[in-house]
Design a protein around this nucleic acid. Structure first.
Lengths: 248, 248
DNA sequence: GGCTTCAAACTTGTCATACCGGATTGTATG
DNA sequence: CATACAATCCGGTATGACAAGTTTGAAGCC
């Protein structure tokens, strides 16, 4: 069970000490030799821990001088913030709609052709959930890329990462997406049609409708889940009351 | 000056080999002993390089089995993409306008009061460029925060980081911002007025106007700087970038 | 023949020790 | 008082050794 590597434990411990303010930003950590005595590990292990911490931006090692706590802790930088599925979908609704509007006037024929291919691919009944998801991603990222703006592409990419990597969001989506295939298909098609017409306002509207429907589905799903829980709980209490009745 | 540490060179080299496809994702790297012979360094150094690569997500070390290239390379994840000042400003124009529109209906009196304070603070003639910049940041982030959507806040925060941390973008801005204080002041005030009226469309428009003016200033600046060779191209860019203004 | 078992071979994990060269610091010198 | 220098501290790297985990293939069993 304790199959972790030693230097990882040491790194976690040092990170903790930094977070607790024992070693505030900018200060110098004890030398490798002193730390190796304090943690009762070899100097090599301390070095490995410090190298891992340096690679992730927590400290910064100066040859011959010592290891110093970074002035700005990594915190959430690079990591994903904890957002709800609602927040994420709302943000995508706004941002991806603008990306589509921006792409509409200048989108190329090749890109439009690719989008149509993706529409067909997604219509395939016997595709797995993962495959569908990959196609969905490419559809949205293709439109984002057509905005021709690397900042926008980066933002939409990071929103997609939240969609895939945050557990709560992932489950929320997989619940909603299961039976919404048809609706999504139609909405995607609407977006493509607007793009084909080079209609910026239309593309924006179609993209917003897509996400707003998703938002509504998620709200329904939440209500449904709450209802199920409620029923289950009342069933339990019913049982409990019946039990006490029997006992009486 | 080139006093880099050995293990960093080794790590860079291994990273390069991975990127070049010599070691495709999922494959196993040669053992530490073999690598130490090939690079003509000790096994300790190889270990340090591999630990640094693992900490940044390039490889994944399995005790007793070997080091494997990560199936999904980190690429730019976490790091800032290289975007131009134009792209960034265009993205902010679209996204921050939507954030303001979203914030307008529900923004609190306290937040509005804080925004007015910030307006006054920015009007201060004798503030340094850095202070102005900090106030500017708080102004935009306060509005983003009022959207009450953590995904949106995260996105706008990362856009601000690009503004501050990408050298090219930074110089572009400092050139434009130097004499534009008055214009910015008025535009910020317009945004606040619209928010006070809980006018979503007005807030969106005011925010777009703010960034579009910035965009035009930057284009002018570019033209001035490289008048001869870039005139043709920047005219195209102007058309291209001002498309987003027309869409409003 | 095909499947299971298990030990040998290989790999990473950690350690102790040694020495080099850069950084710091305190002291002696002008 | 400022400067130069040397003692010392510290990180960087190398070597060799052993512990512990994984792979692999052959022996043995069904």
């Amino acid at each position: 069970m304790a199959e972790r590597r030693l230097f990882e434990d040491v790194a976690d411990e040092i990170r903790r000490l930094i977070l607790e303010g024992i070693y505030p930003p900018g200060t110098r950590l004890p030398g490798e030799r002193e730390l190796s005595e304090r943690f009762e590990v070899s100097r090599v292990t301390i070095r490995e821990a410090e190298i891992a911490l340096q690679a992730t931006g927590w400290i910064h090692i100066r040859t011959g001088a010592g290891a110093y706590v970074a002035s700005e802790l990594p915190g959430n930088n690079g990591r994903l913030p904890e957002v709800s599925a609602f927040e994420l979908t709302e943000a995508r609704s706004l941002f991806e709609a603008e990306a589509a509007a921006l792409a509409a006037p200048t989108i190329s024929a090749e890109t439009l052709a690719r989008l149509e291919e993706l529409l067909d691919a997604m219509a395939d009944e016997q595709a797995s959930e993962d495959e569908i998801s990959a196609i969905d991603r490419e559809f949205h990222m293709t439109i984002a890329a057509a905005s021709n703006n690397k900042a926008i592409i980066h933002v939409i990419e990071s929103l997609w990462r939240m969609r895939m990597e945050l557990p709560d969001v992932r489950t929320s989506h997989s619940m909603v997406c299961r039976k919404d295939g048809k609706a999504r298909q139609a909405e995607h098609a609407d977006v493509v049609v607007a793009l084909q017409k080079r209609d910026a306002a239309g593309a924006r509207l179609a993209m917003r409708r897509h996400f707003n429907r998703l938002l509504e589905s998620m709200l329904d799903e939440t209500e449904e889940r709450a209802l199920v829980e409620l029923r289950q709980r009342s069933a339990e209490s019913r049982e409990r009351y019946l039990l006490s009745a029997k006992l009486a």
